[in-house]
Design a protein around this nucleic acid. Structure first.
Lengths: 199, 199
DNA sequence: CGCTTCCTTGACCGGCCGGTCAAGCGGTGC
DNA sequence: GCACCGCTTGACCGGCCGGTCAAGGAAGCG
């Protein structure tokens, strides 16, 4: 399944035939259709596992961090690290989103991720550390920045994950900040966030 | 070509056969291969024109606006409006990015867009209205927010373009800001963007 | 050694699809 | 009337690919 995932990633879903996959693994076609009911199911399985893994490492990274802004930051950083180690998934995710058959699964996974972020955003709004706007929009904006920077700099250019994460975090935290910030102005430092003295 | 674009958008590139396209237009296959050398070329043509149109309306919207921040805002708003009027292109763009054959064309178009934004960002940095970081990262972050919000809210949910643009602009302008307020940034700082307790 | 059950094989099938091409058609010039 | 030619047609081809299936191990069991 790992092998298939990599083939799909570097060759595309459609151009990669089942025959090619099984030949590359040194087995017959029958054994493939013994374990999977179709090529489509195999891809869905790969996708499901990738999404699951990504979410798991995000949650691990966040741990029981109490500060919602810091949770967002940790999530972004963990995602960047994981994506840097699993670059081939970019192609898969991108294809999955664009394909009619896998679009729904992809969208569901993204909804889950958005839901996670939304929770932190809402908390931040309640405590006045985040601008009081539609949390859904903010969450999608964060994911947009993260995805795009990751794709461009990590996937396409192969940059260092930490640097890219720095940029993403800086942009997002600034983007979340309340407009006429009374107290939370100066501290934009990456490593530690303000420990909530603001109100 | 319009018709083909719409078929590709709602049905996907691979599942839409040339036979289907020509039949839908009420012509024979020969006429298709008289004007286009291949299905691939047709798609590239559609893509090229779409990218061209989008960029054109961006430039029109920006006009000769002197303020770089405002130029960015106008670009975002124009893009949102155009995308709202041409929703079916989302599917096309997404597919094009994910496909091996059209990826390069897609990336080139994105590079052009990024280049446009980078120019404004650099100006903003020079005049101290934008945080002094890698302009490329900032530009990609802006495009990430715009694309993602557009896709989610305009394409998938059909929301009003202006509202979505408001959210995108607010997030991006805040994300670009040096440290304090986004709109009213006087020339307090000279060399470094971060003031006070930067390290 | 038979007998069953669980895997494994790879030739083969049916269908689809991009692309070709011999044939036709209608307008134009003579 | 006729020759020419730009345009159009749609049957057809070759190839590919997902999926099937009859046949064949091999391990376990009596």
């Amino acid at each position: 399944m790992d092998y298939a995932g990599r083939r799909f990633a570097e060759n595309g879903y459609h151009p990669t035939s089942v025959a090619e996959i099984v030949q590359g693994m040194g087995v017959g076609k029958g054994v493939f259709y013994w374990y999977f009911s179709s090529k489509e199911e195999l891809f869905l399985e790969i996708l499901r596992e990738a999404h699951h893994q990504l979410r798991k490492i995000q949650q691990q990274a966040i741990g029981d961090e109490p500060d919602p802004l810091r949770r967002i930051e940790l999530g972004i950083r963990a995602s960047m690290d994981w994506l840097a180690d699993h670059r081939h998934f970019f192609t898969l995710f991108q294809f999955a989103t664009s394909d009619e058959r896998f679009g729904p699964a992809s969208r569901r996974a993204q909804d889950v991720a958005v839901g996670d972020v939304v929770r932190h955003v809402k908390e931040g709004i309640v405590s006045g550390r985040i601008r009081d706007t539609d949390p859904l929009s903010l969450a999608h904006a964060i994911l947009g920045v993260t995805n795009n920077l990751a794709r461009t700099f990590i996937f396409e250019r192969g940059d260092d994950a930490t640097d890219v994460a720095d940029q993403a975090v800086a942009f997002c935290l600034a983007g979340l900040a309340p407009a006429p910030a009374p107290a939370a102005a100066p501290v934009l430092q990456f490593g530690r966030a303000t420990s909530g003295i603001s109100d």
